[in-house]
């Protein structure tokens, strides 16, 4: 017994000296929220997603401190409620909807965090408060009132647009089959989603994960005002989003290559190749069980 305790001490004590620093950086621009919403987030999210972490005493003891340090670093890089103005307004709204979804899907707070921090649990009533809040954000029910701008089909594009990760825009998706159509009311857009033959065959054979070569193209429009019969038609074209499956080439993003081309000029999205990380982070968090794809027909 003495030997076991001795060995444990030899391992345990030195670990404490290399334990990560769980201190807080300065708060830059705190998110502004209604009091009842903020109270929920402060209790359930702030320990990782802010610069106001308050780890418990046991969180500071190695090896637990390593895990806590890793979680906080990762969480702040994804969503930091103390550095809120780092995100443009549209991204802020998307992050808030993503947060609600992560809670609803029970992906957040992390289940292992909840095991030792049960006080961080979000109750169904609190989730309802958060849902009510995101439904007040400006993107909800946003309509496209601008005159519709059409591209000149006789004008050929000088160059094929290419995303920063090398994915070329292509237009032959227009002959593919539709795999879904959506009303994204959280951001005021409507979408038609195409799949190539490999994608459609995989859906028909009810096979997951999708095979290499499977491709998805999502065409996104704004939404016009509802007419007297309740019909809403597409407004201006916003962007085309592409997902291409190649497990080897896109290993770091779960086998999917992402690309987005904005506006009628199809401007490649993103400032660096890291743009795809933003895409996969959300897909990885919420739809890992659907081979990281949201827009597929499922029961």
């Amino acid at each position: 017994m003495i030997v076991i305790i001795g060995v444990a001490m030899i391992i345990f004590v030195p670990l404490q000296f290399s334990s990560p620093d769980l201190g807080n950086p300065a708060t830059k621009k705190e998110i502004s929220l209604p009091t009842e919403v903020k109270a929920i987030l402060e209790r359930a999210c702030y320990d990782c997603h802010s610069n106001r972490s308050q780890p418990e005493w046991f969180d500071r003891i190695a090896p637990v401190s390593y895990m806590v340090g890793h979680d906080i670093k990762e969480a702040r890089s994804r969503l930091n409620l103390s550095e809120w103005d780092r995100n443009p307004p549209a991204v802020q709204q998307l992050l808030l909807w993503e947060m609600v979804n992560a809670i609803e899907e029970k992906k957040m707070p992390l289940p292992r965090y909840l095991t030792i921090h049960p006080n961080a649990a979000v109750s169904p009533a609190e989730l309802a408060v958060l849902k009510q809040y995101v439904n007040t954000l400006p993107g909800r029910n946003m309509t496209d009132t601008s005159p519709i701008v059409r591209s000149d089909s006789n004008k050929r594009m000088p160059l094929v647009p290419v995303a920063l990760n090398g994915i070329h825009y292509f237009s032959d998706f227009k002959t593919w089959r539709i795999i879904s159509t959506t009303d994204k009311y959280d951001g005021g857009s409507m979408r038609v989603v195409y799949g190539n033959d490999l994608m459609v065959q995989a859906i028909k054979s009810k096979k997951l994960p999708f095979p290499d070569g499977a491709k998805i193209v999502k065409v996104v429009w704004g939404k016009q005002h509802e007419d007297k019969d309740g019909n809403i038609l597409p407004g201006n074209f916003q962007n085309v989003q592409i997902m291409i499956k190649d497990r080897k080439k896109y290993r770091s993003t779960e086998g999917w290559g992402f690309a987005k081309f904005d506006g009628l000029k199809l401007k490649p999205f993103g400032k660096s190749v890291a743009f795809a990380t933003t895409c996969i982070n959300c897909h990885r968090l919420l739809v890992s069980e659907s081979d990281f794809v949201f827009n597929i027909p499922t029961k």
Binding site: T181, I203, L208, E226, I296, P297
Partner: peptide, 28 residues
């Protein structure tokens, strides 16, 4: 922890030679 979804190919529609003209949403 994963729960595999059930794909629904019966929701797909296809007819050769048809192009998408537009889409409509009717919340009513």
């Amino acid at each position: 922890e994963k729960k595999a979804p059930v794909l629904a190919p019966e929701y797909l529609f296809h007819e050769e030679g048809q192009k998408v003209i537009t889409s409509l949403i009717n919340d009513k």
